[in-house]
Amino acid sequence: MSGEVTLTIDGREITVREGEKLLWAALDNGIYIPHLCADRKEEKPDAACRLCFVEIEGRPQPVTACSEPVAAGMVVNTRSERVDRLAGTAFELLLSSHRLDCGKCAANRSCALQKIARERKFKLKVTRLRTLDRNLPVDDSSPVVTYDPNKCVLCGHCVRACRRQGGGVLGFAGRGFERRVTTFGGASLAAAGCSGCGACAAACPVGALTAKNVRLPNAGAKR
């Protein structure tokens, strides 16, 4: 399975590794598709954020690019009325439960949500929907990172980063609207055996986990 396949994305012919997922094929060739949860290092996609919809010719419904393997001769469009509408709704839903505080946020200007809004001309404001602030306490216990769960979009990058560091301190708990990234028993980071490597803050795309003003052993890993 080491062959290559050629497909068309937005009218451009692209040749990529066989088995590659559409999302990476597009991004690697400079074609933008909004995304939050996708992780190149994972074999099976989460397909959780519901932002990376694209149209594939011959398919009745838009599909998520992160979960779709490329195929020879496939014709893909990253923009259509349907796709933009689905991504727009998913984006506004995420914003409705993300505490908007860009001016004071450490992730200002590097935030993935800001990038998506800029690329797709989405408003960085909740207009149609109700605001769903969960009003959870901010965890400031760790000497190296601050965790504001009210900004978390549940993309899971921090959980995977922590696991790869051998920590396994962070994980998902609860379900439904109560699903959150937390530690065993909901303890503060300081009490949960966090080693302070900072990989989670480096991985967080939206400023929910941010590095304090200290030098991080893992800094620079930002996506």
Binding site: L93, S96, R130
Partner: peptide, 22 residues
């Protein structure tokens, strides 16, 4: 459904919540 949603995907976790609030 909102209580039983697994919470993984945005559409279901937050979409059904918005609909419920309305």
């Amino acid at each position: 459904t909102q209580k039983e949603s697994c919470g993984k995907c945005t559409m279901c976790r937050l979409g059904t919540r918005q609909m419920l609030d309305i």
